Simulated assay, not measured.
Amino acid sequence: MSSTPVDIKDVRAASKRIHSWVHRTPVLTCQSLNNLAGRQLYFKAENLQKTGSFKVRGACNAVFLEKESNPDSSGVVTDSSGNHAQAVAYAAKCVGLDCTVVLPRGAPKVKCDAIRGYDAEIVFCEPTPISRKETCIRVSEETGKTIIQSSDNYSVIAGQGTIALELLEEVPDLDAIIVPTSGGGMLAGIGVTVHSIHPKCQVYAVEPVGKDLQRCLEAKQRLWPNPPLYLNTVADALRLQAIGYLSFPIICEYASHRVFTVTDDQMIEGMKLSFERMKQVVEAASGAGVYAAVNLMNQVQPTAHKVGVVLCGGNVDLDNLPWLTPTITY
C-alpha cells in the first residue's frame, strides 16, 4: 500500500478520465542520438501533446474532477509561467468552466496568445513566486473560482503520472527515465507510477543551475529560501526554484536523489540536437533532458542501457530563439 496520497490507482483512473481529451503521444527514437549517448534513448514526445506540453494531462484530470464534484462551480484559476496555464484554459473550455490565469509579466507571447485562444482571462502579476501566489488567491476570493495549482495538487500529480503509464507500456524494460523538473508535479507522478510498475527503473530529475534539488533530496528537507526565488534561466518552464509542498515528499520517496544539473548553454545544445537530429521543436526545458541523456548518464548510471526522456513541451517562440536572443532576467 502506498505511503503517499497518490498511487497507481489514481494514475490509472486519471488515464481513463482524460484519454478522450489528450493525445497518447508517440515514443520517438533517433539512432544518431543513440550513438552519441552510447545507449538506447526513448523520447516521450509531449511536445506533440494538446496545448504543446505534458501539462494538459494533470490539468484535465484536476479540472474534470472539479466539474464532476462541483457542477455549480464558478470556474477555475491558476498561476503559471505558461504551459500549465494553457493546459488549465484548455481543460476548462472542454467542460464549459470559466477560467482565469495569473501570469508573470514577460511570459512568452506565444503562450499568452494560446491562453486567450482558449477563452481564458489573463491577469498579469509581478514576476515573483509570491506575487503569483497572492494574485491567484485574490482572484479566487473575488470570484469564487477554484485554484488549480501546477504541482501542489494531487489530481494534477496523478494526471502527470499517465506519461510513465504510456511510456512503460511501450518500453517496459527501461533502466531510467529523465524528467525536466520545475514544481515537481510531473516528477512526482512519474515516480509513483514507475515505482508501482517497474521499481528497478530509476527516475531522475534534470534541473537548471541554482535549483539545488539534490541537496534538498539528500537532506529530505526543503532548504530553499522562503519565499522561493525565480531562477535566471533560458528555460521559462523551469524558473521556479522550489519544488511544491505536496510534490516534495513524493519525490523524496520515489525519485532518485541524484539530480542532473544543466546550464543554459547545455539546454540550448539539447534543443538544437532535437531540432537537427529528430526534427522536433522543443522548449529549453526539453533540451535539458536531451542534453542530460546524451552527455551525462555515464556520471550517474553508466550501466543504463535503455533510457526514457520526457520531451516536456514544444511551445517555442520562434521569433525569439534562445541562441539568437538574450535570456530574460527576472
Rank of each mutant, 00 (worst) to 15 (best):
L318Y: 02
E276Y: 08
A37H: 00
V259R: 12
I163E: 04
T146D: 04
C252S: 08
M186N: 07
V110Q: 08
G106S: 05
V76S: 13
V310C: 13
T29H: 09
T135H: 08
S3Y: 13
I251T: 00
C94G: 00
G185R: 06
N70A: 15
Q49I: 09
K44I: 12
G159T: 11
A237Q: 06
L240N: 05
A89M: 01
G159L: 10
L223T: 02
Q49L: 06
P108C: 06
A284M: 01
H257R: 15
G159A: 12
T162V: 10
A89P: 00
C312E: 03
F124G: 07
A255V: 10
A235M: 07
G313Y: 02
T181N: 05
D98K: 15
V171D: 05
K44W: 09
P326N: 08
L229K: 14
Y42Q: 08
A120P: 02
V307C: 07
S247Y: 00
E218D: 05
L246C: 04
D175V: 04
E134K: 15
G287I: 01
G52M: 03
I137H: 10
K9D: 14
C201L: 10
M267C: 13
D152S: 07
S15Y: 12
S80K: 03
I147L: 02
A176V: 03
V76M: 13
P228A: 02
V110C: 13
L41N: 01
G313N: 09
D236N: 11
G210L: 03
N47A: 15
K9T: 11
A205G: 09
I130P: 00
Q149T: 03
Q31S: 13
P104V: 01
K93E: 12
A242Y: 03
A120G: 03
A219S: 02
N83V: 09
R132M: 15
P180C: 12
R215M: 09
A62S: 14
V203I: 14
K145V: 12
P129S: 03
Q202D: 10
E276M: 11
S20F: 13
G75E: 13
C60Y: 00
T135D: 05
A59C: 08
V192G: 10
T162F: 08
V22M: 09
